[in-house]
Design a protein around this nucleic acid. Structure first.
Lengths: 237, 237
DNA sequence: CCCGATAGCCTCACGCCGACGAGAAGGAGT
DNA sequence: ACTCCTTCTCGTCGGCGTGAGGCTATCGGG
């Protein structure tokens, strides 16, 4: 069996919507290289671990066991990154994972001040090639909101149509007409399940509360404006 | 730097449309394990190689340099596969790549009888977890035809609308109304560029020849019927 | 010379969506 | 109590895209 040997790590793009802003979980590195730089949380794949196991383990370690048993949340693989020189310590292949979580009630996890959710707008200069991994994760999330019901993964167990709309607006950085949005999501079978309760105490008419339905895909999709996004791969570039 | 060390390989899902059938390039393994089993072509990542470099190198080696300089064709990363025990020789992480090629004029490449394009329908029992990688590649290709102009990657430099329609029908295994399809693809700006020439010699009215345009995305997308496809990832499965 | 086959253009109906009006149902201020 | 503001929810209208299908153009073949 020829070929060089790699250390294999999993790096997480943990996204949430906090105060109407799309935020990503970052950790401040305490060791070299890139000491005291922000980076994506991650870790190495252990023996007898599959990539998804490592991602779930790291996610639980970073966000606390609170989100572990919850039905909400989403975790999927992004891509592999193995450019020579991406890690000065040697040959390291990182597999990016995308996690979508509802905003955690307790602001920070067990690791005290070294981890934070920061708005993705303000994030630049991450360690290694994490800027690229983050960009890929954000783009994946934006694209998936178009044709899946994954936006609900950003919401708590029960939420309103406005909560869901603000998720779309935060992730896409657009404004959506509340009336047309309500018609779309409530008329899609299996997207939202109404609950008996209503919200009280806020301004305006009390909204209906919903839970997530069984549907995973949106047919027809909810299309955002066609943005200039280049193809991600091509021969003879 | 903790963590186990992996050998890292790239496995190719090379798809083409031959005789109105979606076909995948397979090679017959000449060594253990899985000796004389069909498998996806692939190889290990060498020193100073990025994953895409390895994929392009293996693709050129398997299909011949004929397709190398051509503008047609498409190559993109699928996902990483690293389940413990997926390779009996030890810890191997495979990165799947998806390649879309026009049907090669010369049936087979340099490696004589050990490689063949087989209809994806008939393919079962590949070596390692290549059945899974192939399924992921086919599903990716099917999904991408919906919202990109990638179907043209299956066609030669100049092709007719019917050629393009037969690509969709072969990949999706559906029938498409030729008139509505023609309206859709010819009215999408930048999808097809008409050439001066026409085809002669066939039955019926001679069709217009087109080249690929600059457009990469299809807005709005061309939707196939909503098939029951489960979500590919979720917490607390 | 007619016929079948393919290419290409056109019309019609329906459904989805953007834009927008209007009523329902709460809280806050006077 | 009344008004005003806010938000939720339902309805209306028009445009656009698409499925269904008619019609003509232009080839090869019997």
């Amino acid at each position: 069996m020829r070929g060089n040997l790699f250390a294999v790590a999993v790096d997480l793009v943990v996204l949430t919507v906090r105060r109407d802003q799309l935020c990503v979980l970052l950790v401040k590195r305490g060791e070299r290289p890139y000491e005291s730089h922000w980076s994506l949380p991650g870790g190495f794949v252990q023996a007898d671990e599959d990539l998804g196991d490592t991602a779930a383990r790291e996610l639980a370690a970073q966000t606390g066991a609170a989100t572990q048993g919850a039905v909400q949340g989403h975790l999927e693989q992004l891509a592999g990154y193995a450019a020579p020189g991406r890690d000065p310590r040697g040959r390291v292949l990182s597999v990016g994972y995308l996690a979508l979580l509802p905003d955690l009630p307790d602001p920070e996890g067990p690791a005290s001040g070294s981890a934070a959710f920061l708005p993705v707008e303000d994030v630049y200069g991450l360690a290694f090639d994490h800027d690229r991994i983050l960009a890929d994760g954000v783009e994946r999330a934006r694209a998936k909101l178009e044709y899946t019901t994954l936006a609900a993964a950003f919401c708590p167990a029960e939420f309103t149509v406005s909560d869901l709309r603000r998720v779309y607006e935060a992730v896409w950085r657009t404004e959506i007409d509340p009336r047309n949005f309500q018609r779309k999501v409530t008329s899609t079978p299996g997207f939202l399940i109404p609950t008996a309760t209503r919200v009280t105490g806020g301004r305006g008419r009390p909204p209906q509360l919903f839970r997530r339905g069984e549907a995973t895909t949106l047919h027809p999709p909810m299309l955002r404006e066609p943005t200039r996004e280049p193809a991600n791969g091509a021969l003879a570039h």
